[in-house]
Write a protein that binds this DNA or RNA. Structure first.
Length: 968
RNA sequence: GCCGCUAUGGCGGAAUUGGUAGACGCGCUGGAUUCAAAAUCCAGUUCCUUCGGGAGUGUGGGUUCGAUUCCCACUGGCGGUACCA
């Protein structure tokens, strides 16, 4: 039998497709296991070798669980709505649905090429109307509910209406945009429009004017996690804050449950910490300060009420609603100047330069505990969105307040004695209170409680919990997304589109551009105008489709519900969720939110969607640069030339076509990206070195390929090459290299198809697993893949002879052979369980080396080994399984179990140490007792040599482990 | 700044509960085979060494009979986040 990886891949991939080997039914006889990959956005550039890392890991788990007798759900789909397809459409005129269909087909092809065991019959696509019908349906349910804090769950909006009709806002404890007070009579007297506006204050999906991240270049608002460093994540355009009428989801209502739920799931500590951070819970006090000469009071939030005696000024955000009323005539000019300054400052400015700025309003507040008069300032360091948008400033203990006080000449009163705690900050909450009346002498934690109690007793505030997390802006002024299923009726009241009219599909349009904040859908006049009223023209963000997709896979073709009750009762939740860390915070958090909402309305049986989460590490690629220099020839001519990165300024050179002179590096020179496909990685004196060979340059001139075309335009900038010569006399340039994320733009993406074409899918899969722990970031390097290929062939050779058939015999395995097999079974089973795939590969190598050495050809040993390697190398395993006469597919053959009787050792090699240093090893029967081992060790000649002339103070014997003599 | 992850040969990495550090693979060195090369196979490969041994898991300390593993204090790299009161 010939080891022909190409033929194997083709044969079995066809077989699996024809026989639907990986089809999953909702059969209930077996226990279920749901292993899910984060579905990709199908971009135009296809998969690179970084993508499959997680897919391969999850595929191994899926296959192993399938063999171990589970009914495994292992689906794949596409997150197909989103900005890039639309941007591509604007640039090229290709409709997003067309480019999406093309890209998804390519993705599927690439995944099938890797032998991934997805059940494609269950595939979903978020841009498919039969899918987004249910996205719209779910958001409709969210719109139709409010959050009851009393019962701590979402309830139908009808319940709220009943309450308001009977009691007004009396006794209502609801998640709300702002605290409102309405009597039952007032509510009953409201027009439909007034009622609708009031209910918006409570709906879990609601429309309001809020400050949002506006991106002019993209013509849409963005969520906080779509903005990085004040610029858009997609396209890197500037982002500004702008008040706009937007749909949002009230995620703040679920903040506490999203936090508490983290204790019940198996996520990494790091990931949990990120989610905790993002939610940002802090406990403190809400305190009311009276304002001199005004009826309004100023509410502030502080986590340190114990420091209230140190308050020497107040600061409110420039956008605070009281600014206008508090400003005195004398300060009006100063305040107006400051407000216009703040208006000019972009988000980016604020972040890049942390200036101490502000202005005095002329107003004064009164400290409720000591009656002190404190001036009220406005300053940009106080944020409108957090807490109440106002603070009591305690310059003695808060760095920002201190800088402000120093700049504006405000008093500083020390209120916390921290000499016992050097380096302690405000957040540490330690020290002893001084200069603070009744709080004097208390330790900080005690003082916080005492101050809060006093404030409450005086009716000047309450204990309060605050969250950093903001409600989730859920409107986009873009074309390629789910339309909001809302129609504004004649009274401008937003009404849900009835379920029977879902999905609300996108109108056909030619031009998708968003113009000055208006959604492109507004231009589809026929679509906007309906018999019932005017359609909402905002679409939903990409997260709308991705935050519930795991449920759709359970029952993908159900057109009566987003998922059937039977299906969700059977599959419950995701047992293992695998994906990139870049989605670790937002996607997981939003998805958990929707899941908890669906739990509240009785549509899912579990409180959390994902039991266990694995974040695979990013595979980076080398980004290589070719250097451009100037050859200054002896006759004073300047020639641009390509040079090696190791050449210094002033190096004498002679270059064909340019002449003789020396190298100049100035502003006109620099580096240019070199596509990875033209770069050769070699090793020189144990240092890796990246080179551009002349043959590659010549090849680039010929190739009809995007990378080659780009490279040609780069090379035209130089006229000549200052080649080095290698040992074989080939010409090359040394390149400089850094590691970075693989991307088409950096020309460093490596296509898995190329690797599979050369080594086969099995080798690619095992090599990616062999690179290292799956959750660690690592650079891509092709060195080492030959080792995995060699291993696979050695494994293959255990079974095959020189002729056509197998060389397998039916004689029973020897004790030694069985021990190798069962050690392997135990190791691989354990390691898959703890997601340590790299050590599995190494275990297969060890076993193969040993079995080769033993010249094993016994069926009893080799047949289980095939079933064992099936999750890792599915094609090769299938071929050998068939040759061995196996029934059906190896991927449904039982997972081998180990038997301890093959693993017990007759004797154990003990390291013998003296004062902790191992000097020799001795063999003792494994049944030996502590005393027997000590006696036998003492009797050993070598040991006596080490002990001679010394006294033994103590002997430590750990049976089956080691012996240590403590000598003096 | 804060939070998280991480540090082991020339390289990727292993050591699961505190018990022989460097498994496995790459690379490198030598040998076999070959007219030769590729491929394959065999042996060696942490460093130093006077060949007795000594040192060694980012640095410095600690706990322990024994520390890559636990504790304390640092340093570097990567990622996230940022005026959050």
């Amino acid at each position: 039998m010939k080891f022909d990886v190409q033929a194997l891949d083709r044969k079995w991939q066809n077989y699996w497709q024809e026989h639907k080997t990986y089809r999953t039914t909702n059969e209930t006889g077996k226990p279920k296991y749901y292993v899910l990959d984060m579905f990709p956005y199908p971009s135009g550039s296809g998969l690179h070798v970084g993508h499959p890392l997680g897919y391969i890991g999850s595929d191994i788990v899926a296959r192993q669980k399938r063999q171990a007798g589970f009914n495994v759900l292992h689906p794949m789909g596409f997150d197909a709505f989103g900005l890039p397809a639309e941007q591509y459409a604007i640039d090229t005129g290709v409709h997003p649905s067309e480019s999406t269909a093309h890209n998804t087909a390519r993705y599927r092809e690439q995944m099938e090429r890797l032998g991934l065991s997805f059940d494609w019959d269950r595939s979903v696509n978020t841009s498919d109307p039969s899918y987004f019908k249910w996205t719209q349906w779910i958001i409709g349910r969210v719109f139709d509910h409010w959050y009851d804090r009393q019962e701590d769950r979402a309830r139908p909006i009808g319940d709220l209406v009943s309450h308001l009709e009977a009691h007004g806002t009396d006794g209502l404890r609801a998640a709300e945009s702002e605290a409102l007070a309405v009597t039952a009579a007032e509510f009953r007297g409201m027009t439909e429009k007034q009622r609708s506006d009031l209910l918006m204050n409570y709906r879990l999906a609601f429309r309001s004017v809020s400050y949002v991240n506006w991106c002019e270049a993209l013509g849409t608002v963005l969520a906080n996690d779509e903005v990085k460093d004040g610029r858009s994540e997609r396209g890197n355009h500037p982002v500004e804050q702008r008040p706009m009428l937007q749909w949002s989801l009230r995620i703040t209502a679920y903040a506490e449950r999203l936090l508490a739920g983290l204790d019940t799931v198996d996520y990494s500590e790091g990931l949990k910490a990120q989610q905790v951070n993002w939610i940002g819970k802090s406990t403190g006090a809400l305190v009311h300060f009276d304002i001199e000469g005004h009826d309004e009071r100023l509410d502030i939030f502080t986590t340190r009420p114990d420091t209230i005696f140190g308050t020497t000024f107040m600061v409110i955000a420039p956008e605070h609603e009281l600014v206008d009323r508090l400003t005195t005539a004398g300060q009006r000019g100063e305040i107006d100047d400051y407000l216009s300054y703040v208006g000019r400052r972009s988000e980016l400015d604020r972040m890049s330069e942390n200036r101490v700025t502000g202005a005095f309003t002329g107003a004064y507040a009164t400290n409720p505990l000591n009656g002190e008069r404190v001036p009220i300032y406005i300053a940009e360091y106080v944020l409108k969105d957090y807490g109440t948008g106002a603070i009591m400033a305690v310059p003695s203990d808060d760095d920002r307040d201190k800088r402000f006080a120093e700049k504006f000449g405000i008093d500083i009163i020390d209120v916390v004695e921290k000499t016992d705690y050097p380096g302690a900050t405000l957040k540490d909450k330690v020290g002893r209170i001084i200069n603070s009346g009744f709080l004097n002498g208390m330790e900080v934690p005690e003082a916080i409680t005492a101050a809060t109690r006093r404030i409450e007793a005086l009716g000047r505030g309450t204990e309060q919990v605050n969250y950093r997390i903001r409600d989730l802006v859920f409107s986009r002024q873009r074309y390629w997304g789910e339309p909001w299923p809302i129609i504004y009726d004649g009274n401008d009241v937003p009404q849900l589109v009835p379920d029977t009219e879902l999905p609300v599909t996108l109108p056909e349009m030619e031009d998708f551009r968003a113009v000055s904040g208006a959604s492109p859908l507004e231009r589809a006049k026929d679509w906007v105008a309906t018999a019932r009223g005017r359609r909402e023209t905002d679409t939903m963000p990409a997260t709308a489709g991705s935050n519930w997709y795991y449920l759709r896979y359970m029952d993908p073709n159900n057109d009566g519900a987003f998922v059937g009750q039977d299906a969700v009762e059977y599959w419950q939740d995701v047992d293992l969720y695998v994906g990139g860390a870049e989605h670790a915070v937002s996607h997981i958090l939003y998805s958990r939110l929707i899941h908890k909402f669906l739990y509240d309305i009785g549509k899912v049986p579990t409180r959390e969607p994902y039991k266990k989460l694995l974040n695979q590490g990013m595979i980076g690629g080398p980004i290589s640069y070719i250097h451009l220099g100037i050859l200054l020839t002896d006759d004073g001519q300047r020639h641009p030339i390509w040079v090696s990165s190791d050449l210094a300024e002033g190096t004498p050179l002679e270059v064909d076509g340019a002449g003789k002179g020396y190298l100049v590096l100035d502003e006109s020179t620099g580096t240019r990206l070199t596509p990875l496909r033209f770069v050769t990685e070699t090793s020189v004196n144990n240092e890796s070195s990246f080179r551009l060979y002349r043959s590659s340059v010549d090849e680039a001139q010929q190739l009809d390929h995007q990378d080659a075309a780009y490279f040609r335009t780069i090379l035209q900038q130089g006229t000549a090459f200052a080649w080095h010569l290698d040992k074989e006399g080939r010409q090359y340039l040394e390149l400089s290299v850094e590691q970075g994320k693989m991307s088409k733009r950096k020309y460093n993406a490596v296509n898995p198809d190329d690797i599979c074409a050369r080594y086969g899918a099995d080798c690619f899969r095992m090599y990616e697993m062999f690179l290292g722990p799956i959750d660690q970031a690592k650079p891509w390097s092709v060195s080492g893949i030959d080792g995995v290929y060699r291993f696979l062939r050695r494994f293959w050779n255990l079974y095959t002879g020189d002729g056509d058939g197998l060389k397998v015999s039916d004689a029973p395995g020897t004790k030694e052979e069985m021990k190798v097999l069962h050690t392997l079974i135990r190791k691989v089973t354990d390691d898959i369980d703890r997601l340590s795939f790299n050590t599995c590969v190494s275990a297969f190598m060890v076993a193969t080396n040993e079995l080769t050495k033993l010249s094993t050809n016994k069926r009893e040993v080799l047949e289980p080994a095939v079933r064992l390697i099936a999750p890792f190398a599915p094609h090769l395993a299938e071929e050998l399984f068939e040759a061995l006469g196996g029934e059906g597919s190896v991927h449904h053959a039982a997972w081998p179990e180990w038997d301890n009787k093959y693993l017990v050792e007759d004797s154990i090699t003990y390291p013998i140490a003296f004062n902790g240093k191992t000097r020799l090893t001795l063999e003792f029967p494994s049944a030996s007792s502590r005393e027997e081992i000590e006696a036998a060790a003492r009797a050993d000649e070598q040991v006596q040599g080490y002990l001679s002339g010394k006294s033994v103070r103590k002997v430590i014997v750990v049976p089956k482990r080691m012996v240590n003599f403590v000598v003096g």
